[in-house]
Nucleic acid binder design. Structure first.
Lengths: 181, 181, 181, 181
DNA sequence: AATGAATGAGCGTTCATTCAT
DNA sequence: GATGAATGAACGCTCATTCAT
């Protein structure tokens, strides 16, 4: 049980709240209370709430990419890794009560100025794009097919969030299988 | 140019703000200022901000379904109507600077209580589902195929919003064509 | 079942709310809603909320004096009527969960201007004073003794309200018996 | 003249307003304006208006009990202390234009929820009860007599408030003398 | 490095009353 | 005689941020 730094405690607490309750629904006071950190201490580590969100998204990006990569790592070839990716979505999202994607969720209702957050979201989605495309490197319609799979992934996430069900993820997987064959 | 009622002015103003700036970013004060309505007058017509959002979503549902239906009405058969639907997305979303779906956006960061809003979102998406499925009535894999198209639609909307580009819509259309053939 | 006039409905509804929930806790909107009366109709019958309170207090005065008089009417002599008055307090207050005196309650937290309400309260208490004093007409220390009984009555009411118990009423009765003998 | 803390300024200002103008008549805005404190500063020290009232009542309890105790401290025996207590009421209440008891006044018209305030009122009255009963410790009818005196005290306070006169206090004193002899 | 106190601006909501028909 | 619509003012409270120590 390693002792966490103040900064780590803030990011961890904020991450939990931002993801599960929403960025706008989470106040600075709630974060510092749950993290047991003084307000001014928090502002010593982060210039603004937006900066905490950036740290949250950066960490989330690393974790999420790692989880996905690990989840599909046992598959023999790229095709199966791609299909297994939809199983990852199902396992992940059903485990968080279909709370959806932290990156999608945060840009849907954001103060006009906070560009740094938007940048993190695009960075994340671009890395997902790179990953999917890399798994299609031997196809001749790599670009087109990759984009289609990306749309399926994002659609599965948001629609399962709305419907609180995994049928959109199953549908996405089915479509992916057809498109990949 | 017919004179609008106060209620209409409120809904119209709020709709514009909720959609373009976000539900949490839009305050009651801004709505009444832009609609030129006294605060208490507003609360004569709506019991809460949430209720305004419900009115906004109900109107948006009608408008959106109508626009889509009209957009594809000239197509000869259902298959072409379905494919044309993705052109609708492209026309619509490029015209609003890829602001995405008002229904998706509002549930991503919502106060925990406001269930009435969530209900409207689900109602909307269920009607979209019915519409898409009805255009597949003669297929033997209607259910499965319909769900796949719905995922593509939602994915195209949210990903074009993140990327501020229409490539996800084009990809979704391509995928739809393949799945429908 | 006689049909009530609008005015009667308003006073009856307001009386219930003013007494049980408090004057400040009762809004105009609640009154008209529960009385099923339009707001402007209400203001046709009463110029202000204060005027409704005045009507409430006038009616309450009549009812309360009547109830007390009737309650003690079977007693043979004035002394016993006076002592029976404390039984009246006990029956009345235990039946309203020790909500206290509507006249006491309304002056404790009143907007500075509303003098008409204060006047009604004083009128009521003066009539109670007259009644008690009249029951002591044959005593030579009528004035002094009457005032003492009045203090006991008011104290029994307010203290039973605070303590939510009838021990103050019993104590007042005991004291009254001693003073009267 | 020691410089007061913000918290002290708030309680002092609120106490003055709550007592003299009434709890419902006193708004948060008035308190912070007269105390020259920012609204958010106030909410740093108190979670709600109710909590300010609790602080007000706690302080008032201490002050009032102290004043009474001191006022009667020169009397030789308990009997005289008890009788002198009614002189205290007269001195006190005539000095505040018969504004009555802050504890009585605040429960007469209180929002349904605010139980913490009611608790303070009962605490206060229970301590008064203990004090009066303690001054009767050598009587064999201590309990009964004490309760009677308490009713006289409360009645004197509320009736002098309604009548804006000290005759109820004098009457209460007379009755007390009789009962004690 | 760490902190509790303080802040201006804004939140969503309700008040008693008046107006136009 | 009756009404729904409209209103300015105030309500209690929370926001993200900064200051003084």
């Amino acid at each position: 049980m390693k002792k966490q730094s103040v900064k780590e405690r803030i990011v961890e607490t904020a991450s939990d709240l931002f993801y599960n309750n929403g960025y706008n629904q989470t106040g600075i006071n709630q974060i510092i209370a749950e993290a047991s950190v003084a307000k001014a201490s928090m502002y010593q580590h982060f210039r603004s709430k937006e900066d905490i969100a950036v740290a949250y998204l950066k960490q989330r990006h690393i974790n999420w990419m790692g989880s996905l990569t690990e989840f599909v790592s046992n598959e023999k070839n790229n095709n199966e890794k791609l299909i297994k990716s939809f199983d990852f979505l199902q396992t992940w999202l059903s485990g968080v009560n279909y709370r959806g994607c932290g990156f999608q969720n945060i840009i849907c209702d954001l103060p006009k100025e906070q560009q740094k957050i938007k940048d993190q979201v695009v960075l994340h989605k671009n890395d997902v794009k790179k990953l999917i495309h890399s798994l299609l490197e031997d196809k001749n319609n790599q670009e087109e097919l990759g984009n289609e799979l990306l749309v399926l992934i994002e659609g599965a996430i948001i629609l399962s969030q709305i419907q609180k069900s995994d049928w959109p993820i199953i549908a996405a997987k089915n479509a992916a299988i057809k498109l990949l064959s």
